[in-house]
Each structure stands twice: as C-alpha cells, then as structure tokens.
Simulated assay, not measured.
Amino acid sequence: MSFNALYTDLSGYYDLMCADIDYQTQSHGVIRLQQFFGNGGRQHLDLACGTGPHIEHFLTAGFQCTGLDLNQPMLDLARQRCPQAQFLQQNICDFQLEQPVDLITCFLYSLHYAADTQGLTACIRQVLAALKPGGVFCFNAVDKDLIDNNTKVRHSASQIANNEQQDFIFESGWFYTGLGDKQSLNLRIAKTSQGVTQQWQDQHPMVAVNFAQLRALLEPAFEVILLEHDYEKIVPWNQSSGNALFICIKK
C-alpha cells in the first residue's frame, strides 16, 4: 500500500496516531519564538497541517491561519476543527499564496516529506517567497548522520466507534542506509476490534540531510538559529542530538 493511500484510508485515525503529541506546548513554544525573533505579525501558514491541531492553538492565540496539506481527507477534518482558518490542498514543494505571511511552521518533521534534496530546495524557495520581510520559518528536522535505525517510537490508543471498542498500536522509526539524500519513515499500525486485528505497514519516502547541509540550503536567504528540540525552553542546539528546532529569519 502506498503512503498516500495509507493516510487517506486512515485519515480518521490520524489524531489517535498522534495522541501522545502535546500540540498546545508545541504551538505555544513556536508562538514564543515568533515573539522573540519575528516581525510581530499574525499571519500564519502551517505546512503539512494534517487535521489542524496546531492551527487550533494559533487561532486561539489571535493568529490568522492558513493550513496546507496534500491530503484532502485530512483537510476536510481540519476544516471541521478550525472553520475560521483557510485550507489549501497543495504540495509543500510548489505551493503558492495570494498574500505573504509572517510565520510559516512545519511541525512533526514534515519538512522531510520533500522527498529529496531537489524537493527540499524547492520547498525552501517557496517558503522564502511566501514570507514577509523579517518573517520566521520554524520547523523541526532530523540529522541523517545521527539516525539510529533500531530506535522505534510506540504508543497505544483506544476509541469507541459504532458501539465497539477499537484498540490501536502505532509504531514508527527512521531508517537511513547511510548513503544519499533519501531515507524512510517506517510506520506500523495495528487495529484490534472484537478480537480481530488488522495491520498496516508502510515506508514513507523522506529527504535525508544532515544539519550542516540543511543550514547551507537556508543561509543564503535566512538567518538560521538551531535550538534543542524542546518547545518549553529556548536552548541552543548541543551539536550532538539528532533532532533540532530550526528558526529561520528572512533577511
């Protein structure tokens, strides 16, 4: 099954897949970074917005939000969650906006969906065009040289649907061969209902870069600040952890 079909089929379970994510803390952390480093504006674009859980918190904080995603079922759910926001079905590598914005976010390592270095370069080019002067591009990323292929993240969740309990196990992990600009996010989902278990497995193609390469792509047009992957503190990246927050201020 392709990754797009998987997400289309399971878009209704997306929030369960991400049940362990603290969207409020992540959103408030980036809002604080926008206050410190940004231009003071409130026009916000969320790339790869999914069902809109981050946007919900930005709206509450007084931002005017647009969400962008390639998956229409996700966007349908996002519109239900955040009817006051605008949503666009576009690819992060070639999107266009009618008006520039002050803040562009890309949470949950979704910038890696650019697939390869060419796609990543195109995405950065579109972000630059979509930002106002002094605008901020904030995202998290993983360094390909520091990936442990044996590390997996696993959590479980349950819901009641059609008067039946459904139990889920979600497992994901990065995999990089050690060569080239492509890696994968391996995903496994198991759903058990009435004693019957269904399983889905997939590999999402992702762009593989190290932080030095990513900084080099960004720095001609942005002032780049790397922080530890901690949305509650503003701490410089320690140069050894495998993931980080990138704060990119348009020059």
Score class of each variant (00 low, 15 high):
residue 119 G to P: 07
residue 242 G to T: 15
residue 131 L to P: 00
residue 9 D to W: 03
residue 108 L to Y: 15
residue 184 S to G: 09
residue 123 C to K: 10
residue 248 C to I: 11
residue 226 L to N: 03
residue 235 V to K: 13
residue 250 K to I: 11
residue 231 Y to G: 05
residue 116 D to M: 07
residue 2 S to K: 11
residue 249 I to F: 04
residue 70 L to G: 10
residue 161 A to Q: 14
residue 74 M to T: 04
residue 106 C to T: 13
residue 248 C to K: 10
residue 230 D to F: 11
residue 26 Q to W: 10
residue 84 Q to K: 06
residue 178 G to E: 14
residue 6 L to N: 05
residue 211 F to C: 11
residue 69 D to K: 02
residue 213 Q to I: 01
residue 98 E to V: 09
residue 156 S to Q: 15
residue 190 A to N: 06
residue 46 D to R: 05
residue 28 H to A: 08
residue 104 I to S: 01
residue 171 E to F: 00
residue 19 A to L: 03
residue 95 F to A: 09
residue 31 I to A: 14
residue 44 H to D: 00
residue 177 T to V: 09
residue 157 A to T: 03
residue 30 V to G: 00
residue 189 I to M: 14
residue 27 S to P: 03
residue 26 Q to R: 14
residue 133 P to C: 10
residue 89 Q to W: 04
residue 207 V to T: 14
residue 59 L to K: 01
residue 23 Y to L: 07
residue 149 N to P: 04
residue 222 F to V: 11
residue 164 E to M: 09
residue 12 G to K: 11
residue 186 N to T: 07
residue 119 G to L: 10
residue 91 N to I: 07
residue 52 G to K: 03
residue 29 G to A: 10
residue 192 T to N: 10
residue 34 Q to I: 03
residue 227 L to I: 06
residue 9 D to F: 06
residue 45 L to Q: 05
residue 102 D to I: 02
residue 237 W to V: 06
residue 217 L to Q: 13
residue 177 T to W: 00
residue 233 K to C: 06
residue 192 T to H: 00
residue 247 I to Y: 01
residue 42 R to W: 05
residue 15 D to P: 00
